[in-house]
């Protein structure tokens, strides 16, 4: 191997290692699971129904995955199972006083303000309920869900339950 070739090889190896290290760091930084945060839910209206569509601890940690998954199914495949539909969440969780999930004590906004996580959902989606949900919610908790979501939910729940004890609602 000539001197030049060695240098070229070295350069390539360095470049590739650097890129890989960067990607790994980026992944570790963004991909790692978040630690549970203490509940900020004081003075916040929790919901009209008696029961959420999944255990609270699961929802706290994984609601965004559920929403994301449902979103793609709904937009691209027209699957509109109620269980993890954002409109359904809003219908139940909107504070009857403000009629919204936003605002200082809003279900979504208060927690996201506390966790300092920006949500972009409501620049497009309506934060106001569309239908009355008082009676419907427990039914929806048991309502059919799309099989692909069901699979994902049960998988998440199993890992979650195995890894650490689940704390109930505050």
């Amino acid at each position: 191997m000539t001197h030049h070739n060695k240098t070229v090889l070295g350069a390539w190896v360095t470049a590739i290692v650097a890129i890989a290290a960067f990607l790994a760091a980026a992944y570790a930084f963004t991909g790692g699971p978040a630690k549970p945060v203490p509940s900020p839910l004081t003075g916040v209206f929790l919901g009209k129904g008696k029961k959420c569509v999944a255990p609270v601890a699961i929802m706290r940690r994984y609601h965004m995955q559920f929403l994301l998954h449902q979103r793609d199914l709904t937009v691209h495949e027209g699957i509109r199972t109620q269980r993890f539909l954002l409109t359904n969440c809003v219908d139940c969780h909107a504070d009857p006083k403000t009629n919204s999930v936003l605002g200082k004590h809003g279900f979504c906004a208060s927690c996201h303000a506390y966790a300092a996580v920006q949500i972009d959902c409501f620049s497009c989606h309506s934060p106001h309920p569309q239908r009355e949900q008082e009676t419907a919610t427990s039914a929806i908790a048991l309502a059919p869900q799309h099989s692909r979501i069901a699979e994902m939910v049960s998988k998440t729940m199993v890992t979650e339950l195995q890894s650490e004890p689940v704390d109930g609602p505050k």
């Binding site: 409109t87 620049s123 497009c124 989606h125 309506s126 309920p129 569309q130």
Partner: peptide
């Protein structure tokens, strides 16, 4: 910026 979107028709800036 939009407000008052219909629940079934999300749309935004």
């Amino acid at each position: 910026n939009l407000t008052g979107q219909r629940a079934d028709v999300p749309r935004g800036k």
